[in-house]
């Protein structure tokens, strides 16, 4: 197996607002995190709200730069989070699909090849060529998920995006993401759904106050997480 991502002592601290500085509050963020992800691994990241899971994922996606440390990766990395951010109300569904695809780093040719599949999966029919502002919130979410999951990356990073749309679409999108997980080289998932993580992950990490508390088998990590929640 080869390493697809390596994190070496990465740190990112958010500045403490001026009014709280005199209270010596510890800045939130990520501190001295190091691990490697191997080809084919499905890694789950859990932790309390505000523990730094999403920040860590964004750093691995190259969205946030670390203050110190190095993040190295191999192949195309795709972050599935904030689905629908970047859509423009005045553009049509089709125009937004092209724009969103480009924001994900895809070329026009790659989007051309998948545009019919994106339209079909989003179940938007004739609405696809109508302005986005006329879409219901469910339609907007469906378009977002459809574009975001259309491309197969080498390393897929997922941040709690499986619960959008109506019941049938939610099931459909969950199956799509599961397929994506199977076909992607490696996957990192941030979620609060322990059952889903236990079902999908080959390895898990527990984050607490921006630091790795435990890195290992899903059962052991979930047990530790439950202990942390009790304290």
């Amino acid at each position: 197996m080869s390493t697809v991502m390596r994190l070496e002592n990465i740190t990112l601290e958010y500045p403490v607002p001026r009014r709280y500085r005199k209270d010596n509050i510890k800045p939130s963020g990520i501190r001295n995190v190091s691990f490697e992800l191997e080809q084919g691994e499905v890694l789950g990241i859990i932790g309390r709200n505000g523990s730094g899971k999403s920040t860590l994922l964004k750093m691995m996606a190259g969205v946030f730069p670390p203050n110190s440390g190095t993040i190295s990766s191999k192949g195309a990395v795709s972050l599935l989070a904030g689905v629908g951010v970047g859509f423009n109300k005045e553009l049509t569904g089709r125009e937004n699909a092209y724009l969103y695809g480009a924001l994900m780093g895809r070329s026009r040719k790659q989007i051309d090849e998948l545009i019919d599949e994106i339209q079909s999966f989003a179940e938007l029919t004739h609405h696809f060529d109508r302005p986005f502002r006329t879409f219901s919130s469910g339609m907007r979410a469906r378009l977002g998920i459809s574009v975001a999951t259309a491309f197969k990356p080498d390393l897929l990073l997922i941040d709690e995006v499986l619960g959008v749309g109506d019941v049938s679409f939610r099931e459909k999108s969950q199956n799509r993401v599961k397929d994506l997980i199977k076909t992607s080289g490696s996957v990192i998932i941030v979620s609060h759904s322990l059952a889903m993580l236990k079902d999908m992950c080959t390895r898990m990490i527990l984050i607490e106050d921006g630091e790795i508390l435990i890195d290992g088998e899903p059962d052991a990590v979930i047990t530790k997480y439950r202990e942390v929640l009790k304290n």
Binding site: P65, P66, D154
Partner: peptide, 17 residues
């Protein structure tokens, strides 16, 4: 710090240079 936008399939490359 510069965001590296190219995709290199050969080896691990730093995300930021």
């Amino acid at each position: 710090m510069v965001l590296k936008t190219g995709v290199d399939n050969s080896d691990l490359t730093p995300l930021w240079s």
